[in-house]
Amino acid sequence: MKKLFFQVLFASIFILMLSSCTEEQDFSQIDDLSVTPTLASGIFYLESDEETINSAGGFGTFYAQTVNFDAFNEAYVAERLLEGVIIYEIENTTSKRADISIDFLDESGTPIYQETFTVEANPTETFTREVTYGPGGLSLSILTNTSSFRVTGRNLGDATSTSTHPEPKISLSSAAEFIFRLK
Protein backbone atom coordinates (compact mmCIF):
# COMPACT_ATOMS: atom_id res chain seq x y z
CA MET A 1 0.00 0.00 0.00
CA LYS A 2 2.84 2.28 0.99
CA LYS A 3 4.69 1.41 -2.20
CA LEU A 4 1.65 2.13 -4.27
CA PHE A 5 1.21 5.45 -2.51
CA PHE A 6 4.70 6.60 -3.41
CA GLN A 7 4.41 5.38 -6.97
CA VAL A 8 1.18 7.27 -7.46
CA LEU A 9 2.56 10.35 -5.72
CA PHE A 10 5.70 10.57 -7.77
CA ALA A 11 4.00 9.68 -11.01
CA SER A 12 1.51 12.46 -10.40
CA ILE A 13 4.17 14.98 -9.67
CA PHE A 14 6.17 14.05 -12.72
CA ILE A 15 3.11 14.42 -14.86
CA LEU A 16 2.73 17.85 -13.29
CA MET A 17 6.31 18.65 -14.24
CA LEU A 18 5.79 17.50 -17.77
CA SER A 19 2.62 19.54 -18.05
CA SER A 20 4.31 22.70 -16.86
CA CYS A 21 3.07 25.83 -18.51
CA THR A 22 3.26 29.54 -18.36
CA GLU A 23 0.81 32.39 -18.46
CA GLU A 24 0.70 34.44 -21.62
CA GLN A 25 3.62 36.84 -21.79
CA ASP A 26 3.74 39.94 -23.95
CA PHE A 27 7.33 40.93 -24.52
CA SER A 28 6.36 43.74 -26.85
CA GLN A 29 5.37 45.74 -23.75
CA ILE A 30 8.98 46.79 -23.55
CA ASP A 31 8.24 49.20 -26.38
CA ASP A 32 5.93 51.08 -23.98
CA LEU A 33 8.69 51.69 -21.46
CA SER A 34 9.11 55.37 -20.71
CA VAL A 35 12.42 56.57 -19.25
CA THR A 36 12.40 60.30 -18.53
CA PRO A 37 15.04 61.32 -16.01
CA THR A 38 15.43 64.85 -14.68
CA LEU A 39 18.97 66.05 -15.15
CA ALA A 40 20.39 68.97 -13.19
CA SER A 41 23.57 70.90 -13.74
CA GLY A 42 25.16 74.23 -13.13
CA ILE A 43 25.50 76.22 -16.37
CA PHE A 44 27.26 79.53 -15.93
CA TYR A 45 28.63 81.49 -13.03
CA LEU A 46 29.90 85.06 -13.29
CA GLU A 47 31.39 86.93 -10.36
CA SER A 48 32.92 90.39 -10.35
CA ASP A 49 34.28 92.47 -7.50
CA GLU A 50 33.31 96.12 -7.15
CA GLU A 51 36.76 97.35 -8.07
CA THR A 52 36.46 95.78 -11.51
CA ILE A 53 33.05 97.36 -11.97
CA ASN A 54 34.42 100.75 -10.95
CA SER A 55 37.30 100.39 -13.35
CA ALA A 56 34.81 100.07 -16.20
CA GLY A 57 33.59 103.59 -15.42
CA GLY A 58 30.15 104.93 -14.66
CA PHE A 59 27.52 103.27 -16.80
CA GLY A 60 30.29 101.23 -18.37
CA THR A 61 30.38 97.62 -19.44
CA PHE A 62 32.48 95.64 -17.01
CA TYR A 63 32.06 92.28 -18.77
CA ALA A 64 31.13 91.28 -22.30
CA GLN A 65 31.91 87.86 -23.56
CA THR A 66 30.50 85.41 -26.05
CA VAL A 67 30.73 81.88 -24.79
CA ASN A 68 30.26 78.78 -26.87
CA PHE A 69 27.46 76.64 -25.42
CA ASP A 70 26.40 73.50 -27.28
CA ALA A 71 24.87 71.58 -24.42
CA PHE A 72 21.32 71.73 -25.75
CA ASN A 73 21.89 71.72 -29.48
CA GLU A 74 23.81 68.45 -29.54
CA ALA A 75 21.61 66.21 -31.69
CA TYR A 76 21.31 63.52 -29.01
CA VAL A 77 20.17 66.06 -26.42
CA ALA A 78 18.00 68.17 -28.69
CA GLU A 79 15.99 65.16 -29.83
CA ARG A 80 15.26 64.06 -26.28
CA LEU A 81 14.62 67.34 -24.52
CA LEU A 82 11.05 67.43 -23.15
CA GLU A 83 10.78 70.33 -20.77
CA GLY A 84 12.60 72.06 -17.98
CA VAL A 85 13.64 75.20 -16.28
CA ILE A 86 16.68 77.43 -16.18
CA ILE A 87 17.16 79.08 -12.81
CA TYR A 88 19.05 82.34 -12.39
CA GLU A 89 20.17 83.87 -9.14
CA ILE A 90 21.88 87.23 -8.73
CA GLU A 91 23.48 88.54 -5.59
CA ASN A 92 24.75 92.08 -5.43
CA THR A 93 26.62 93.39 -2.41
CA THR A 94 28.14 96.33 -4.27
CA SER A 95 26.97 99.91 -4.12
CA LYS A 96 26.04 99.77 -7.81
CA ARG A 97 22.84 99.16 -9.62
CA ALA A 98 23.76 96.75 -12.37
CA ASP A 99 22.38 95.15 -15.45
CA ILE A 100 23.30 91.71 -16.74
CA SER A 101 22.00 90.39 -20.01
CA ILE A 102 22.33 87.00 -21.64
CA ASP A 103 21.77 86.72 -25.36
CA PHE A 104 21.10 83.28 -26.75
CA LEU A 105 22.83 83.10 -30.13
CA ASP A 106 22.37 80.57 -32.90
CA GLU A 107 25.19 79.10 -34.92
CA SER A 108 25.44 82.20 -37.14
CA GLY A 109 25.69 84.43 -34.07
CA THR A 110 22.19 85.84 -34.48
CA PRO A 111 20.39 86.56 -31.21
CA ILE A 112 17.29 84.39 -30.81
CA TYR A 113 16.36 85.26 -27.26
CA GLN A 114 17.52 87.59 -24.52
CA GLU A 115 17.30 87.35 -20.76
CA THR A 116 17.96 90.63 -18.93
CA PHE A 117 18.36 91.21 -15.23
CA THR A 118 18.56 94.53 -13.46
CA VAL A 119 19.51 94.45 -9.83
CA GLU A 120 19.47 97.29 -7.36
CA ALA A 121 22.49 98.20 -5.32
CA ASN A 122 22.95 95.97 -2.30
CA PRO A 123 19.45 94.42 -2.28
CA THR A 124 18.29 92.63 0.85
CA GLU A 125 17.29 89.48 -0.97
CA THR A 126 18.82 87.31 -3.64
CA PHE A 127 17.24 87.97 -7.01
CA THR A 128 15.85 84.73 -8.50
CA ARG A 129 14.22 84.01 -11.81
CA GLU A 130 13.01 80.67 -13.14
CA VAL A 131 12.39 80.45 -16.86
CA THR A 132 10.37 77.47 -18.01
CA TYR A 133 10.89 75.85 -21.39
CA GLY A 134 8.57 73.39 -23.03
CA PRO A 135 4.81 73.02 -22.41
CA GLY A 136 3.50 76.15 -20.69
CA GLY A 137 6.74 78.01 -21.14
CA LEU A 138 9.11 79.27 -23.77
CA SER A 139 9.80 77.26 -26.87
CA LEU A 140 12.38 74.51 -26.52
CA SER A 141 13.67 75.55 -29.92
CA ILE A 142 15.34 78.53 -28.25
CA LEU A 143 17.59 76.14 -26.41
CA THR A 144 18.03 73.57 -29.14
CA ASN A 145 19.11 76.31 -31.55
CA THR A 146 21.42 78.02 -29.10
CA SER A 147 25.06 77.62 -29.96
CA SER A 148 26.51 80.32 -27.72
CA PHE A 149 25.73 82.93 -25.09
CA ARG A 150 26.72 86.56 -25.10
CA VAL A 151 26.94 87.69 -21.50
CA THR A 152 27.11 91.40 -20.83
CA GLY A 153 27.47 93.11 -17.47
CA ARG A 154 26.86 96.87 -17.20
CA ASN A 155 27.39 99.22 -14.34
CA LEU A 156 24.32 101.42 -13.91
CA GLY A 157 25.94 103.49 -11.17
CA ASP A 158 28.99 105.66 -10.65
CA ALA A 159 32.61 104.62 -10.84
CA THR A 160 33.81 105.67 -7.42
CA SER A 161 31.53 104.55 -4.64
CA THR A 162 32.38 101.44 -2.64
CA SER A 163 30.10 99.26 -0.60
CA THR A 164 30.71 98.88 3.13
CA HIS A 165 30.38 95.13 2.66
CA PRO A 166 33.72 93.39 3.43
CA GLU A 167 33.89 91.78 -0.01
CA PRO A 168 31.52 93.66 -2.29
CA LYS A 169 30.73 91.76 -5.46
CA ILE A 170 28.03 90.92 -7.93
CA SER A 171 27.43 87.33 -8.96
CA LEU A 172 25.18 85.58 -11.43
CA SER A 173 24.47 81.86 -10.92
CA SER A 174 22.56 79.72 -13.34
CA ALA A 175 21.53 76.12 -13.44
CA ALA A 176 19.28 73.90 -15.50
CA GLU A 177 16.90 71.13 -14.56
CA PHE A 178 15.51 69.40 -17.61
CA ILE A 179 13.52 66.27 -18.32
CA PHE A 180 14.84 64.10 -21.12
CA ARG A 181 13.25 61.14 -22.84
CA LEU A 182 15.86 58.41 -22.92
CA LYS A 183 13.30 55.83 -23.99
Binding site: S41, F44, V67
Partner: peptide
Protein backbone atom coordinates in the same frame (compact mmCIF):
# COMPACT_ATOMS: atom_id res chain seq x y z
CA UNK B 1 33.62 68.10 -10.06
CA UNK B 2 31.98 70.87 -12.02
CA UNK B 3 29.74 73.82 -11.36
CA UNK B 4 29.52 74.67 -15.05
CA UNK B 5 31.33 77.52 -16.76
CA UNK B 6 32.81 79.86 -14.17
CA UNK B 7 34.14 83.35 -14.75
CA UNK B 8 35.76 85.35 -11.95
CA UNK B 9 36.61 88.99 -12.43
CA UNK B 10 39.16 90.41 -12.46
CA UNK B 11 41.10 87.12 -12.73
CA UNK B 12 39.45 86.13 -16.02
CA UNK B 13 39.12 89.61 -17.48
Amino acid sequence: STEGITVFLPEDI
